[in-house]
Design a protein around this nucleic acid. Sequence first.
DNA 1: CGCTGACTTGAATCTCTTCAAGACGTGTGG
DNA 2: CCACACGTCTTGAAGAGATTCAAGTCAGCG
Lengths: 266, 266
Amino acid sequence: MNQEQVSEKSFPSAFESDPLIKKFGGFLTLTDDEIAYLNSLRKNQSSFEPNAEIQSEGESPQHIHILRHGWAVRYKLLSDGRRQILNFALPGDCIGITANLFQAADHSVAALTTVTSDNFPSKNLLSLCQAHPRVALAFNWATAREQTILAAHTVRLGRRSAAEAMGHLFLELLKRLQLVGLANKHSYELPITQEILADLLGLSIVHVNRTLRRLRQRGLIELDLKNRRLIIKDIHRLAKAVDFDPTYLGQERKPVKGKKQLLGES
Amino acid sequence: MNQEQVSEKSFPSAFESDPLIKKFGGFLTLTDDEIAYLNSLRKNQSSFEPNAEIQSEGESPQHIHILRHGWAVRYKLLSDGRRQILNFALPGDCIGITANLFQAADHSVAALTTVTSDNFPSKNLLSLCQAHPRVALAFNWATAREQTILAAHTVRLGRRSAAEAMGHLFLELLKRLQLVGLANKHSYELPITQEILADLLGLSIVHVNRTLRRLRQRGLIELDLKNRRLIIKDIHRLAKAVDFDPTYLGQERKPVKGKKQLLGES
DNA sequence: CGCTGACTTGAATCTCTTCAAGACGTGTGG
DNA sequence: CCACACGTCTTGAAGAGATTCAAGTCAGCG
């Protein structure tokens, strides 16, 4: 069990390895027809170097980018240079869907690693509504999911301590990455610096460093930012320590009234 | 210039006074056909007393509620009782749109004042996509706008001081309430307690109290929570003091590259 | 008239920030 | 190959901002 992510080539069909399709699979199963249509919309690909801007606040994007490889950050800047990262954009995530409904994007997106994306001309998404309503619904689901994640992040920033927020984030990332096949049971590649973590969690770099060390000392995680890898030592203990709801982002199952274990609790 | 909000009866048409239609008007102009269709979907109304739950986290809603009167809060609770308010729901805002795409709502909604709402059976919203795509688009716009507001709130919590966050919030509410005719040039009814403000801004009640006093002493606002009314003394000075982007939530105009004055700056 | 909920204020404490300095690894040009 | 620069991580010490605890005011209401 050493492989942690499914390489693209190990699948016979190019469709199955598509992170967008994997992700949509958490919501519904697309027909071959729908998959073909989705692929026909894909007019071109782009690639971004680390730190390149994929979308800029205030500008109106022409394309919707769907990430295939790499990590990006959505963020907003204050006029004095302070930065708040809103969320990561991971493979399978869409950039620019909501920005297309406005004259201007409300936030910027920058590549963290080398990023490749598929681009949809944004007007095509509107016609999609009538041509393939189930696909349109899946995009709406993805948007709603994005909003759920942002809401959880708001709670982290407003009402959790630094350690709680950080642990909660690590568990959220585990779930998100598992959905697109980029994490195994308890670890994943985490290609970020402490500065990124600071701007995400609304903390100073120094405090991120100390909080990280304490989480390590408590035996909850094992993190090597140099090797870009995070290992969660004991998922249940961490989830308990940071008040992580195991049903969070688990839309694929029937709701369990009273929200009980979904992580297992065995 | 003493009246601050348009009473429902002062309009000949019941349509024009509908906050949802006012709000959509910030995005597109609905045809009579579309308005009629919208009204046909409206199957019944409900009313909620202060503190009543309109939606509960973990449960799957049957209806989409569109607020007609009153204020509500979207919020999440931690297991130890801490509460983070995500956003206010104001007249014209929709409750339960995204929750309908999941098996379970990701947050709760509670009435702050007496609230009345129109209810759409949620399955109707799906057929809307094909029957009246422009209306469906308007709902998507409203959802995207909600997300923009949540993103701005995330920045407030993560990277702004208490005073900045609070002032920024007051300006945002001014814009939102103006859109539905519930605020005049520089003041509006604000039916909340300091505790609500604390849970929204991620602060303690005590600190909200002190921050509020300082804003008052600096002559930026005049607030009487007893009389439930906030007056912004000098919009431009406050906007400058809290780094409020005047183009924020101004989707109705063409984007101004480099985002300059929209509040006037005269 | 006394209860209740909301607002207010002081004092002690704690979390997190800021400033400062040093360690380590990696890539670059001499 | 070494020297140097740069980005990132790490740690200590001082200080600011926010919380907690505690007490007291005030208005509305039964």
